[in-house]
Design a protein around this nucleic acid. Structure first.
Lengths: 199, 199
DNA sequence: GTCTTTGTCTACCATGTGGTAGACAGACCT
DNA sequence: AGGTCTGTCTACCACATGGTAGACAAAGAC
């Protein structure tokens, strides 16, 4: 029928993020993705030569997406460190809640081949570097609790990603999955992090 | 040859925790596990009627193991809340580092069927309940920062699990994977959590 | 109007996977 | 010694999955 919507590739990427991120890479078949998109499996293999290269593309796009979000938040925020941290968390929180698979995909990386992990690590490197430098400065200025800046980045990442990608953890403590519950969650998460970082 | 080591079942469970926890359930084949144990695939299916029931057993055993560790730590610790929290984190940290797959498996639950998730949630319920009650008491007594006790449990869980199961995050901040690095990591993790919880 | 390019589809194949059937060897009972 | 039970193995099957080959239809190129 050759509908030629012109966005097949993008649709495939979107569906792939959702499925890889929620079920995991290995548990998602090409047919699953194709079915979700409403297209034949072969069409996927037309746009991406193999499942593995599809994964590459998905990872890269996700990294770019998140990077853009963070970048914008940092630029818009005040220079004061706690405000800046709050801004970043808020910025990440929105897409994370709307599409839990986004961060789920990032987490999935630890399950994948070292190759994929390495590549994503390299891509994230400059952001990490900037964050650690910033934290170190602020710690030196006495505006943040003294700690290893790199580890603080990792810990904050772990906290945000963990809470955003494990709905089971929230269900276990009977947290309401409503809009209000989410806003309160965001507030408590930020309070938690700020308390951990305040001097 | 019928070696009859008497621990085949236990060996299977152990290998399954490692593989399910590190690669993920879907990415692990029965042959993988059998190979690791040094036994034929059919032997697995003799002890566990299906891959799914093997997973059930693995989850249950892991929950029991972790529960025992936490239980012991809580009993041994002083009654002061910060000391108690520190004791629990230290207790969880040891097995988590020695066998990253343990917590990786817990995290894997969010990828599995709601059935499995539900069951594990139920199993963990009493512990969660006790932890939240304890935190609430201590907050009321002014010994901990005022916050939603349930969420604090979830956040602390997310932080510990995240940092323990994502070696990539640590590699990204160039954290040394040595014994000394691990001890310092534990120290910083505890400092991070205590700062977040102190009144 | 023909030709080429682009995007999609329908077979089809090779392989890996979960699971079944049943043989077989040692242990234990009598 | 004979019979049953337990644990392990080999052989096999049905099926899903990633990937290939090639037909086909619409859209430009000229």
């Amino acid at each position: 029928m050759t509908v030629r919507r012109g966005n097949t590739r993008a649709s495939i990427l979107e569906a792939s993020v959702d499925l890889f991120g929620s079920r995991g890479f290995a548990a998602t078949s090409l047919d699953d993705i194709a079915g979700r998109v409403g297209v034949a499996k072969q069409t996927l293999l037309y746009w991406f030569p193999s499942k593995d290269e599809l994964l590459d593309a998905v990872l890269e796009q996700t990294a770019l997406e998140l990077a853009a979000v963070i970048e914008a938040a940092v630029r818009a925020a005040a220079d004061e460190p706690l405000a800046r941290i709050e801004a970043v968390v808020k910025a990440v929180f929105r897409p994370a809640v709307r599409r839990p698979a986004l961060l789920g995909l990032v987490r999935e990386v630890s399950r994948l081949s070292p190759d994929h992990a390495e590549r994503l690590t390299m891509q994230v490197q400059p952001f990490v570097r900037r964050a650690t430098d910033f934290l170190r400065e602020q710690m030196d200025a006495g505006l943040l609790r003294r700690a290893d800046p790199g580890l603080v980045v990792a810990l904050a990442y772990a906290t945000v990603t963990g809470i955003a990608t494990e709905p089971e953890a929230l269900r276990a403590v009977e947290w309401p999955a409503t809009a209000i519950g989410l806003r309160r969650l965001r507030g408590e998460l930020i309070a938690f992090l700020l308390a951990a970082l305040r001097p």
